[in-house]
Design a protein around this nucleic acid. Structure first.
Lengths: 334, 334
DNA sequence: GACCAGTTTTGGACCGTTCCAGAACGTACG
DNA sequence: CGTACGTTCTGGAACGGTCCAAAACTGGTC
């Protein structure tokens, strides 16, 4: 009652197992009638190759491991889509693992992936710094997608251009006439880049004095709290640039709770163009990182790196665009 | 430069490969000093067992495949969390695959999983009917989680009790004083159950005449359109029970667009208690299916079925609760 | 009919584990 | 001292594929 093996197929088709293997891998060197016979036998027996046996012998798995930070934050869905399509085109399958789900269990996902001997590793989003990832990256081709860290030798980074994105958003607000603008800052290098770019643009317009920054934590709750702090200043901002869509939703709630109408009394800009921002009821103006493209390019980087593991590490940045929706308008006074 | 094998470890520790295998699998029958030697060698070489070789030999993979319908709809996150924790406790790893991502590529995920020879399969949510899944379920222990179909021989089903959930929601609205109540209906058996239960409760209260049902499609967009239709009736409902949180958000937008305040002019109830419903700005009253529990129980079912594949198919229903938040109140007239 | 050059086909080694039967080594007992 | 019995350790046969060198077929030429 075991699943049929290549030998069963061979016997049924009246050929050797080697010939079956040849047919299955699409060799040209096989006479049509034998090919037919083999394929017929495969069909009749419902044969499926055993991936474990194959990868043991081939010494590769045609599988790449994808490390997610947290499925609860939906910004990566598009990225994954791009990743998957490009990998699939090259005969690679994708295995997902959620770091957040597993960290609680104290399990190290890179360990699972190394035991699986994945052909490549993609770290999606800013992961907590981990010695294990560093070690894994030294063994197996690795690409960081949608984040800027960690920077490791031979590890490519593919992400949206955060400096440009934050600039687009800030200039949009300034062009609308806002002068006193707040920022909800995020973590890590990405957080620092967006914040820094925001401040740079404000300085360029001589508005640095009117700038306020509060730290959020990427969640709605964090955005809510940061906004409450921003809005409780004596001179409150008329616009807020949030680190991401989730904290922007938090900002929306804070505004509402304080009796401010968005965008009349307070303009808000999110970041990531997640489906949450696209919910009609929220309809956030937000920065689109071209995540699908980030995914595709990350896949390409990985493919290139698998082909030549020693090539120098690259940093690929995609060009973000501003998606203007319902949460920005000129300030009330104008 | 290849990764070290069990033989390398054996040589380094001055023992046979069999002894290494014994130590690694935690046998008691090994003298402490040898054990130490082996573990030291493992450490020094950075040895990691090769999962492919192991599963080829053991004829099992300690891996279960999880088929997701669509990552964009976030209701399953908690479920996955429960699933993962229980599976992990039993030494099984979980591989995710998103059907939506892959269907576009025309790839059949059950195929990937059968080639991988996963020890079990979990279908999460209502998947499009598929001959492949039926065939796979005949080969490998399978459990449906968070959905009611397909019903196949030897396939367990674990889900929230949709009848009870819809009843709780409907009775809540009636208790608040609503009489004219609309419903946004969903697809599949789950959709039918919720709708039917809604209608039953309405009938019990003699309100069947005041009932209106419009079909949605699980998305925000579908919920929006269905609500527009519901609200354009001459006598419009004062409350709407949505099939899920996503369509409830759509309903929220529709209400807003038509100038109705929620909950003053229109009460709304969602379903699934997703994080979207928990966003402070939306704060939907919704039915909680105890998804974490569904996940844990589904995992348990799968474990039981792996132990005894021939046992009769079970249907396990969890008890939902109503999560009352900001989108329900007595109707304006009261 | 022998020989040659291609084209097809095949047997067997190998990939890195597990697992089993039996070997080697005590230790206790008659 | 020989034997029996535990305990600990080992060699080798799987597991189900790939791949290579060589064997077995072709058909054509002299």
């Amino acid at each position: 009652m075991r699943p049929p093996t290549i030998r069963d197929v061979a016997e049924r088709a009246g050929v050797s197992k080697s010939l079956v293997s040849l047919v299955l891998r699409g060799s040209e060197q096989v006479r049509p009638e034998k090919r037919e016979a083999v394929l017929a036998a495969v069909e009749e027996l419902g044969y499926r190759p055993n991936a474990a046996a194959r990868s043991l012998s081939e010494r590769r798995t045609r599988t790449v491991g994808v490390l997610l930070h947290d499925m609860r934050n939906p910004w990566f869905v598009e990225l994954l889509d791009g990743l998957n399509s490009r990998l699939h085109d090259n005969g690679l399958r994708m295995l997902l693992a959620d770091g957040h789900l597993n960290r609680r269990l104290g399990e190290d996902l890179t360990r699972t992936f190394t035991e699986l001997r994945v052909d490549g590793l993609i770290a999606v989003g800013t992961l907590p710094p981990s010695e294990a990832l560093r070690a894994a990256a030294a063994q197996v081709p690795t690409v960081v997608a949608g984040a800027r860290e960690p920077t490791l030798p031979h590890v490519d980074v593919v992400a949206g251009d955060d400096q440009l994105g934050a600039r687009l958003a800030t200039e949009h607000l300034i062009a609308l006439g806002h002068r006193r603008i707040g920022h909800i800052a995020g973590d890590g290098v990405v957080g620092a880049l967006r914040r820094h770019s925001f401040e740079t643009v404000m300085r360029e317009h001589g508005l640095l004095d009117l700038t306020a920054v509060e730290r959020g934590d990427l969640t709605e709750e964090g955005g809510y709290r940061a906004t409450v702090r921003l809005l409780s200043a004596p001179e409150r901002p008329t616009a807020v640039l949030a680190f991401n869509d989730m904290s922007c939703v938090g900002a929306l709630s804070a505004a509402e709770e304080l009796g401010l109408r968005v965008p009349r009394d307070l303009s808000l800009v999110g970041y990531d163009n997640t489906y949450v921002s696209r919910l009609r009821h929220l309809w956030l103006t937000t920065v689109d990182n071209a995540s699908h493209d980030v995914g595709r390019r990350a896949a390409q980087c990985l493919l290139d790196r698998i082909a030549d593991p020693a090539r120098p590490a690259q940093v690929v940045l995609t060009t973000p665009t501003l998606e203007i929706r319902g949460t920005t308008s000129p300030p009330a006074g104008r």
